[in-house]
């Protein structure tokens, strides 16, 4: 069985070349971070210089350092202080995540039903597209009427916005499952549920994660919109309060906090994706 030794030598080669590729990827990542950082510095510099040069009043566009001060004043307080970012951010995050979970699960459920049963697809698809093309943020006032000014309407908005990318993506992903794999399950007399669980759901995983990635950011957006329409707490309320006293630096600082939160959530989803869907994008045979 000399051939096996040859193949394990080949495996060594594959391992070393994949190590080289990993190195290359790391260098590329460092370079990309460098480019990003340089771009950010340029932006701040241009911002600072133009505020000074054109003498822009701070209630129109505050200078970068004023935003930093506003940001810091909300960070350098105890976690439970009503002046800090922590309480409103926690409230927004909790509602956004709750809505995200509900919306994502419902989206996966209906997407799966549509992919699995043609009549369900025929019945639901027109409504799905109609609702999808509707600016969902415009539904927010209705949601507030139905669910009140409390957390209910924030969770509902987050769920509504997270639902669609998840439904559409899980539907598309399951329909894209390879015919050969489904035939394999057929040859093995697998039940419909077994084929769904072992082939269709994993096949759709890359699509589902793309949906989750969009969904989590949309959920955050949905919560903020609901908060704008009259809530007692949350980042949306913090922004409205700062705006009411023309504390534009405060508005900017809140936006920075939200932006960073969005990026972190996106990175978490990508990280989970990489550890679960590690087999995607590798050469398939």
């Amino acid at each position: 069985m000399t051939d096996i030794r040859t193949e394990s030598n080949a495996m060594d080669l594959i391992a070393s070349s994949s190590a080289a590729a990993k190195n290359r990827r790391r260098n590329e990542r460092i370079r990309n971070i460098g480019i990003g950082f340089a771009g950010f510095l340029t932006l701040v510099l241009v911002w600072k210089l133009s505020v000074n040069y054109f003498n822009v009043p701070s209630y129109i566009l505050p200078a970068p350092e004023q935003v930093v001060v506003a940001l810091w004043s909300g960070l350098a307080v105890p976690v439970t202080s009503p002046l800090g970012w922590y309480l409103p951010l926690w409230s927004t995050m909790a509602n956004a995540l709750a809505g995200f979970l509900i919306g994502a699960l419902l989206g996966l459920f209906f997407g799966s039903l549509m992919a699995e049963f043609r009549p369900v697809e025929t019945a639901l698809m027109p409504y799905a597209f109609a609702l999808q093309s509707l600016p969902k943020v415009a539904i927010a006032p209705l949601i507030v009427i139905w669910c009140g000014f409390g957390d209910g309407s924030k969770v509902a908005m987050a769920a509504l916005l997270a639902f669609f990318p998840m439904m559409v993506n899980s539907f598309a992903g399951m329909r894209a499952a390879e015919v050969e794999r489904i035939e394999l399950m057929k040859v093995l007399s697998a039940s419909r549920l077994e084929t769904y669980r072992l082939v269709k759901l994993p096949s759709a995983a890359p699509y589902i994660f793309a949906g989750l990635d969009m969904g989590i950011v949309y959920a955050l957006l949905g919560t903020i919109v609901a908060e704008f329409l009259g809530a007692q707490e949350g980042m949306g309320v913090a922004i409205t309060k700062a705006q009411a006293v023309t504390d534009v630096a405060g508005v900017f600082a809140a936006l920075v906090v939200l932006g960073v939160t969005g990026i972190l959530l996106h990175l978490i989803v990508r990280w989970v994706e990489r550890s679960i869907v590690h087999w995607a994008d590798r050469g398939k045979h």
């Binding site: 794999r181 394999l184 072992l198 082939v199 994993p202 087999w279 398939k284 045979h285």
Partner: peptide, 10 residues
């Protein structure tokens, strides 16, 4: 046995 190995990548 199919034309492609048709193993489930996950």
């Amino acid at each position: 046995v199919f034309q492609q190995a048709n193993l489930l990548p996950w």
